[in-house]
Amino acid sequence: MATSTSTARVAIVTGGSRGIGRQVVERLAAEGYAVVVNYRGNQAEADAAVQAARAAGGEAIAVAADVADETAVAALFDTAEQEYGGVDVVVNAAGMMALAPLADLDLDNLDRLLRVNVRGTFAVDQQAARRVRRGGAIINFSSSLTRFARPGYSAYAASKGAVSAITLILARELRGRDVTVNAVAPGPTGTALFLEGKDEQTLARMAAEPPLERIGTPEDIAELVAFLAGPGRWVNGQVLYANGGAI
């Protein structure tokens, strides 16, 4: 693989082929980042994200990796370093959701969810903690559902509560490294996955909850990620709830 001579800041975005991750890829590319778009299985979506990043003004490549597989994650970081010379920003946007009342949830689904959301965040953060350069940032994804306490979301909210805990502790473990660690905790955000299966009445009810009276957009979340990745150097060890004031 050829090594780029680019001096741009370099970002790895897990789950970067769709949803909020895809928007983060485009937003960072517009800031001039070289972006490594991580994806699990859909190469066509990942390739589309790469093309969008390049169109936005950045460099980009797509790299497949299971975020819960520590060997694959190490190889992902290896590729970023070989291609672009190092890693400055890591955005953990990969995740999955399993919804059911606690009493009814299939524990195999719980295991799969925890593997991606908790082990995946841990494995990626482990490599990030070892490799992110000075002046860099690690940005995890928690969820406002840790506060909303909505029935049916116990497994998902528990996994995101774990992400919040990992974030706060890692920020303190990286004392002296000049690397910030924060988590973004979105509320309802209008991705294709979120909108699927919801009728207009449900969406209207959710839009009415925040004082800003709308559902969030992937662009709203990507803007916050870009701030934490770049100018927001004095924000560290925080979970930022991005939900329009719903809580």
Rank of each mutant, 00 (worst) to 15 (best):
L76N: 04
R9N: 01
S144L: 11
L28G: 00
D47K: 08
A74V: 11
I166C: 03
A149M: 12
F122C: 07
K198P: 00
T217E: 10
V163S: 01
Y156K: 02
A49K: 04
R131S: 01
E213K: 13
Q82C: 09
R205M: 08
R133D: 05
I247F: 14
G21V: 08
I166A: 09
V90L: 14
V50W: 07
R22S: 06
S6T: 15
F141P: 00
G41I: 13
L228G: 04
A11P: 01
A60L: 10
F77Q: 02
L168K: 13
R150L: 15
G95F: 01
G16F: 11
V163K: 05
A29W: 07
I20V: 09
R130T: 12
L224S: 04
R54D: 08
V124K: 03
E223D: 12
S143W: 01
N109A: 15
L102K: 04
D78H: 04
A68R: 03
V50T: 04
P211D: 08
G85P: 01
G136E: 07
F122P: 00
R9G: 02
T189R: 06
E81W: 12
R233C: 10
A75C: 10
N117Y: 01
R54C: 12
E59G: 07
Q238K: 13
A98F: 06
A229V: 12
R115H: 02
R112L: 13
R150E: 09
T121K: 01
P211N: 13
R130D: 06
T7L: 15
V25Q: 06
A123K: 11
R27V: 04
G16T: 14
G230C: 09
E26M: 15
V132D: 03
R40V: 10
A226C: 08
Q23Y: 06
F148P: 00
R147S: 04
A192I: 08
L228A: 02
D108V: 15
L102P: 00
E223C: 14
V124T: 03
S164A: 14
Q82K: 13
R54V: 14
A149C: 09
T79S: 09
Q23N: 12
D178K: 10
N92D: 06
R22D: 09
A204K: 12
A62M: 05
Q201F: 12
A80S: 13
E83A: 15
S4E: 04
A207H: 03
S4Q: 02
V67S: 02
S4T: 10
L228Q: 00
E200C: 13
S6F: 09
Q82P: 06
R177F: 05
P101D: 08
A11I: 12
E70N: 05
